[in-house]
Design a protein around this nucleic acid. Sequence first.
DNA 1: ATTTTTATTTTGATTAACCAAAATTATGTT
DNA 2: AACATAATTTTGGTTAATCAAAATAAAAAT
Lengths: 238, 238
Amino acid sequence: MPSSTVENYLKQIFLEQQINGNDIVAMGKLSERMEVSPGTATSMVKLLDKSGLVNYEPRNGSILTNKGSEIAIHVLRRHRLIELFLVKELGLDWSEVHEEAETLEHSISDKVLEKIDIKLGHPSVDPHGDPIPSAEGKIERKKLVNLADCHAGQVARIGRILDQNSEFLKFINKYGIRPGQIVEIKDHDTIADAVNLAPKNNQPVTLGMHAASKISVEIIDKSSKNEINKRQSQSSNT
Amino acid sequence: MPSSTVENYLKQIFLEQQINGNDIVAMGKLSERMEVSPGTATSMVKLLDKSGLVNYEPRNGSILTNKGSEIAIHVLRRHRLIELFLVKELGLDWSEVHEEAETLEHSISDKVLEKIDIKLGHPSVDPHGDPIPSAEGKIERKKLVNLADCHAGQVARIGRILDQNSEFLKFINKYGIRPGQIVEIKDHDTIADAVNLAPKNNQPVTLGMHAASKISVEIIDKSSKNEINKRQSQSSNT
DNA sequence: ATTTTTATTTTGATTAACCAAAATTATGTT
DNA sequence: AACATAATTTTGGTTAATCAAAATAAAAAT
Ligand SMILES: [Mn+2]
Ligand SMILES: [Mn+2]
Ligand SMILES: [Mn+2]
Ligand SMILES: [Mn+2]
């Protein structure tokens, strides 16, 4: 029933809430994410408030209601199942499925969605490592650590790629960096601002800290004894 | 680039041209097919004319230009490939795929479409027996005969179902009537206004003439010596 | 040849999304 | 506190797609 425009607004508010700790979302952030002018976002949010999908506090921002949240999660489920389907069943490259899913997420019926879910065996993560919400709307989040905060000697499993950029995805894929892959952190050099890592069965690569911060991992061995990891490791991916 | 609304107008004009022998399409027919008011169809057609997609003759009707025709055929290709994909790969029932395809035909990229085409092995007909245009826009039409015009004793292959109605499709499917199926015409009774036929490996069924006229077939044996078949056997299906 | 009926077009309005630029309010800085 | 900057809202306007009802034209019937 909600238009695809409304679905997109709700999804963006949801994603922003995910990374800001469920705080109210500023109009500026929303208009930026939606790539519309600030005034457009304001008037849309007023309508969403009237429909009971968000709570809008003028001069402050908006936050999803339960109803809005449910819709957003359902859109996200569609998006991510479609991405995985396109990769697994139709053989598209993981670097190109995000754009495709961006439109298909609004045109697939629940019936088709559940067929896809069954065919894929009720998967829990999409090609970028983003969690796929269950049909009931539960999202299982793993506690992941930012690759930029790892230490030399640690062994980790790639969890999630926090950047949908097609070039970036193609690049890291070439070096064997993708969700599920085991990597060993060979070196973490703060001065050089770089991390050197060796994905299992692949050549080692050096990533600048900024690029490394786009990848979050699950430490599985040689947990170093140093300070607490500090970098934001949540994603706003879809 | 054309909106899904424009794609739908072009598709409906195309389908109407198919059954009226490529004649100009009256505004009334178009507005009826599009389920919009006559005035709406008029103003849209003027725009389509301005964009070079149709030629509009006021007080008369409109006809597709080559450019408009190309787009319409491409939409039809998407529609029919999607229908077949939903049946073959996702296990939906042929009675429900038309509605699904009606929206998906506007949201699937060429890249995904060609993957689907490959996966299905470049099929030439959709689940209702409607021809699938090639990527180059060629449509291969078989010369089919209306079941209502067949004669007792003839053996035929079901070609095309000229009615997308879900209930109708479920009904005939239950009796083994579907594209490709071989049937023997047991009786054709003009007085009773009914046709009795026996699909291979199925119980015989009796269909009223009106229902029978929704099915077109290819005669493969015992071609009767009588008059030329007269009933319209073309389809406006998608 | 009129009159009636039907088909089509025109007119005037509406709704969802949007933008640019002006007005307002809040925040930060001297 | 006063001023400057940044964020947000308001205002006025646009475009695509639609409708209802009035006006017009063509076709059919008398
Ligand atoms: Mn995505
Ligand atoms: Mn994703
Ligand atoms: Mn169809
Ligand atoms: Mn079909």
